[in-house]
Design a protein around this nucleic acid. Sequence first.
DNA 1: GATGAATGAGCCTTCATTCAT
DNA 2: AATGAATGAAGGCTCATTCAT
Lengths: 203, 203, 203, 203
Amino acid sequence: MTLSTQPSDRALARRQQVLDAAAECFRRRGFHAASMAEIAKTAGMSPGHIYNLFENKDDIIAAIVERDCEEVLQRIAAFRQEGALLQQMLGGIEQAIDDRSQVADAALQLEVMAEASRNAKLAAVVHRTEALVNEQAQALIRQSLGEQAASQLPPEEIEGRALMLGALFNGLTAMSVRHAGMAQRVPAIAPVMRRMLQVLLAP
Amino acid sequence: MTLSTQPSDRALARRQQVLDAAAECFRRRGFHAASMAEIAKTAGMSPGHIYNLFENKDDIIAAIVERDCEEVLQRIAAFRQEGALLQQMLGGIEQAIDDRSQVADAALQLEVMAEASRNAKLAAVVHRTEALVNEQAQALIRQSLGEQAASQLPPEEIEGRALMLGALFNGLTAMSVRHAGMAQRVPAIAPVMRRMLQVLLAP
Amino acid sequence: MTLSTQPSDRALARRQQVLDAAAECFRRRGFHAASMAEIAKTAGMSPGHIYNLFENKDDIIAAIVERDCEEVLQRIAAFRQEGALLQQMLGGIEQAIDDRSQVADAALQLEVMAEASRNAKLAAVVHRTEALVNEQAQALIRQSLGEQAASQLPPEEIEGRALMLGALFNGLTAMSVRHAGMAQRVPAIAPVMRRMLQVLLAP
Amino acid sequence: MTLSTQPSDRALARRQQVLDAAAECFRRRGFHAASMAEIAKTAGMSPGHIYNLFENKDDIIAAIVERDCEEVLQRIAAFRQEGALLQQMLGGIEQAIDDRSQVADAALQLEVMAEASRNAKLAAVVHRTEALVNEQAQALIRQSLGEQAASQLPPEEIEGRALMLGALFNGLTAMSVRHAGMAQRVPAIAPVMRRMLQVLLAP
DNA sequence: GATGAATGAGCCTTCATTCAT
DNA sequence: AATGAATGAAGGCTCATTCAT
């Protein structure tokens, strides 16, 4: 049994090591094909020791998802602070699409979702993550509309826009795997994407 | 080695049996957790015999993807024959979103994409499939615009729209797994989705 | 998942092979120290195949206990058919004690009991086994007393005797491990044992 | 290597802590299933430090057996001092049987014996223990017979009785695990047990 | 075509033990 | 004296795949 006493600083650092290693291995081979032995080797520690830091393999992937979530939230927060959201977003679209097109990252994300649909514990993490992100997306939309105009719309409208915003980005992730050479299609996509964002972010 | 002389009618039927069984098992347990033994049992044949019909487990999933592709193409074709595409689509949105929200199907699709990113053979199938679907999507868009108006637009515009159409649907698939209780959010999503489709299908 | 369809004759024979091998390994190393790999090798088959025949390692030991039980019951049955039970028993005591003094067998028996106290499934088998043996012991005692005299005694008396008969034999098993050179003490024990059996089997 | 210079008082107390903890864990989970980590936690010290006090896990169990032995010897000694042994014993039978029926204790005892049959070091401890207990049992029997009458009997007779006395008690231990609900059968057993003790302790 | 017994590599996980501090 | 991080060997078990029949 792994105890759940306060993890020491050292343990925290070791956990990060494992998460980095695991993310790399998962990206390289997929969740199921990446062995604990490989992860351990990549992390520069023994397989046994990983189990002092994590409950089991599933626990590692859950921790990765949670860490990624925090990163996303921070990115959204930073983004919201800059103001002039729509302009910003329309301008940054190429970059955003590019980011979504890193196939290995995309694959890991897709796999996590697939896994979540059959693993209750992971599902909980994913849903919690998504709830946070969605909340931020709604705030972003409200901010972009102007709080005044936003308060005039029914909450369902905001919610629907946020969900579609999520679908749009997740859809790009999926397409980057589905569509051969997606990265080269960014110029074709960007203008269309721009118009779609306007539908979601403007009044 | 399995020879690939003319597959008999009987063999073709047996293959379908296996594909049906495998699809069911994959949906139930995921690709990696479904065992050949379980598939064989579900298909009502011996594990050994499956290897007379398919090269290996990967080969089965590739075949499933190909079969699904044909189905999708037929659905698009039927859809295009009905005319008044935009109206039709706007009307059928609730159903379409619902369809995308069958979590088990969604999970399998996501898993296939994840798998494809690391399995060249499967990637080839997925890419070929996507190419066909994208081609149909472009035709659909052109038809919806009216061939006249369509021919005025640069091909890149049509292509971008088709890709975003793909992203939209794949994004809904992903969201149905990511977002707890997505099925209940359809009323919130539908109107937003409607506007986005107009962006893609109308001039 | 192992299916529980009718086991074929072949499978039955293979099971016996495994049971023989496992009993040997367990006797040699103990239940926990005997590895499935070693059992497989001893049985002349692959580790994987054992799992087509048995659910898991625990299942093997349960099957061994059950097989041993049947053997004991047959021995008791044969014994009861000979008649003149007390005389027979008193005469065969040296042999019986000797049998109980095979240290390796004794150790396995003790370990099974210890294991049973923490493994519900094994406990069930052991208890069922013991119930059958106890029943035969009671019949043996009644037969030895003569059915007439037996029917005069309260059932509790018969039951108590049967339990003590069991304790006596199991106690010898334990002593054969506890007491260094127990096998050589048979001449010292036999006469005492004889008197104790008379207490249990005579009126 | 651990040196064995004069163990300090402190070390002795720490050893007792470990033995208490280990006995508890062994009773709860069995010798093999109890981990050093669990023992350390129960003892309120680090796993590493246990190895300053004991050679290894086997060493702990040996020490437990030795400590238990001393306890048993003290109990016998106290018992012998009371006089009127047979009466005392016959009176205390229910209690004695009850004591033997604590399944967890019984299981540990059985496991120790099983282990001893394959572990020379533990065997030595068990045999030494048994030798001491047997010696006391013989003294008890002689005392019960009256030293006069006892000296008339051949030493083998006394020895045989002592061994059977041991078998009887160990047999009850075994039965408490083998026989479901043994604790409730005490009333049925006690009178029979009484007669058997008379055979062993009376002339 | 078809079976299903059989293989064996490989996986996740546990745990006694060590050792730097 | 004491910690607890770290090791790494080994174990039970699964499963894609093969092959004799």
